[in-house]
Design a protein around this nucleic acid. Structure first.
Lengths: 339, 339
DNA sequence: CCGCGAGTCTACAACGTTGTAGGATTGCCG
DNA sequence: CGGCAATCCTACAACGTTGTAGACTCGCGG
């Protein structure tokens, strides 16, 4: 079927290896030989068999990306950024879905040989926790993403959760708000996006001399729109007063905003709102949603670069490194106040 | 580094081929031999080298999915569905982004050997048009998705654009609306989502005896939220009257809804709205968005199945087939009226 | 007791590529 | 004109797997 080196060699009247050399831009080839080979390649429509190449070289040129679900906007946008970053470096991306926080499936991905067709893995767990860190000690190049596990045995690229949540909260405070609700807490969590962002929230309060009121924290299981809506409904029913809200991600914030509006509250006048993630959606919601840009592009780019370094470096003895992306507060209508 | 068949064979005291046979569940192996081999496999942590396997077999077990961008929600959800469907069939998915409608890049993907590491391709173009159909005549298994090209040389899985757009329009008519605006038209387009859905819209009007008023059609270039907003702004400024709106996709509809609300119009009282795609977002917007479920899961499942058939069938002589997924009208608040 | 088939296992070749080693040719200097 | 290095090219082996062909054992019927 498909032409091989052999066919091209035959057609061009040279050895297989010479054709291989032409393809790999080997220096010492006579111009006319090269030309003849090129013509034969064109004529036969030859293109190298990557399976054979990768068997020989031990590299596939493909990296894996394991995320919970692409239908979660954050991960879709992350995947977009990763694919783009990988392409710049000549890599392809094979995507694996672990399900929305299914710890067992996440562990299985780490063990099983299913993605042996890849040179390494970018792994963004949602169900695993810090105690599972030792599972990350695998014998293939692995770069960890997200905020579920810190201090693990691998390179780790993450966002500045605490600091950026503190900045988000401080932003609301700078607008004169003092009673700031939070939506998206996870009970008892210390590490993980929810735990870290709550800590940032508390730090900002402390810095401003505002006492922390546990009644202002809305807890959820997942971070979908519906959870944001439910959580906000509970806060309203509890009767606690607040003049601002920090949504631990944009999706939660948008769900909560909807409930606020249904309840007749004006945003930002009655309740100022800020989210987290800088999803495209927030740019077009009513009102547009203030948010934190967590540096997604930087995260993707760093992650791919670091993974590629691990792949090419044979000495795996460089100790694990941590990378934190730069964040940015983005003010839109939902928190636009005299300040 | 990694153990090979040879290592396992040595450890178990059998031939390489026997180990291979054990792995591939060959029938005639003595129980104790099998056991010994299994133990050796476990002990050495052996897992097969997929490059070698695919070199031998000519199959990689990976399919490619080429979509414009994952940050477009529709494609993110499509990718989710495709990956899930592929996994059920034991396939992995390598995702390639063609950019938001970049015809040149789409053509390049079809020619270049970049995804030679795959057994076949699911291709969802956005920039190509029907005249480019011949480019689809490639020498690898290819299944076309979307509504840019019909009657091409490959299998094609698509949604029922005309019929479902007709149903969406008919839904608004059944709610007593007669002046129905459309957002998302593409000037001069006949084939393509915009052209087909506009045709469905016109058919519904005709069936109801409502004359088609070109002034009610809002044209856009892309189908992002911003375009929906701009288009709706233009409609409002033009002074044309309408009591309903059909957004050619949910994203457009959400953008347009926002402008309607800013203009002080109530949904659905003043303007009833329906979108298209059944994105998760529409479930939580304010008001929730009526829409068409175009059968995304069915599309993904069919596409993967058909591609797999083409891959395994050596006789490529089965003529190209067309598949149309079943759609469904989903009524939510944005069009909930006495009817 | 021979022959035969089923069961169990093995040796060898091949998939298409690239690294290694080395052979042939050319050009240049002494 | 001989010698040596640079240039150009080739043969062979190897990457790890599986298909093919066949060797060997065993039990059983003739």
């Amino acid at each position: 079927m498909a032409a091989t080196l052999k066919d091209v060699a035959l057609a061009a009247g040279v050895s297989i290896k010479t054709v291989s050399n032409v393809i790999n831009d080997y220096q010492h080839i006579r111009a006319d030989t090269k030309q003849r080979v090129m013509e034969a390649i064109d004529e036969l429509g030859y293109s190298p068999n990557l399976s054979a190449r990768s068997l020989r070289s031990g590299r596939t040129g493909v990296i894996g990306l394991a995320v919970p679900e692409l239908s979660l906007s954050y991960f879709a946008e992350l995947a977009d950024a990763v694919i783009t970053a990988a392409e710049r470096r000549g890599l392809k991306v094979l995507i694996e879905q672990t399900g929305g926080g299914d710890r067992a499936r996440e562990l299985e991905i780490l063990r099983s040989p299913r993605l042996q067709m890849t040179d390494g893995l970018l792994f963004s767990p949602l169900g695993m926790s810090n105690e599972d860190a030792h599972y990350l000690d695998v014998n293939f190049p692995l770069v960890l993403l997200g905020e579920r596990i810190f201090g693990g045995p691998t390179d780790h690229v993450t966002m500045s959760n605490v600091e950026s949540a503190r900045a988000a909260t401080a932003h609301l405070i700078s607008k004169g708000r003092r009673r700031i609700a939070v939506v998206g807490g996870h009970r008892g969590e210390v590490i993980g996006s929810a735990g870290l962002r709550l800590r940032g929230y508390q730090q900002a309060l402390e810095e401003a001399g505002i006492p922390f009121d546990p009644a202002l924290v809305g807890y959820t299981t997942f971070w979908h729109r519906a959870n944001g809506a439910t959580s906000m409904r509970e806060l309203l029913e509890s009767g606690v007063e607040f003049d601002a809200m920090f949504g631990m991600n944009d999706t939660l914030a948008l769900g909560a905003m909807r409930v606020l509006q249904e309840a007749g509250l004006r945003i930002p006048d009655d309740v100022a709102v800020i989210g987290f993630d800088d999803l495209d959606e927030g740019r077009y919601s009513l009102p547009t949603l203030s948010t934190i840009d967590p540096g997604r592009l930087e995260i993707a780019d760093t992650a791919v670069r670091v993974l590629q370094e691990r792949i090419s470096r044979r000495d795996g003895d460089v100790p694990p490194r941590e990378f934190e992306a730069r964040y940015q507060v983005i003010e839109r209508e939902s928190s636009a106040l005299p300040g």
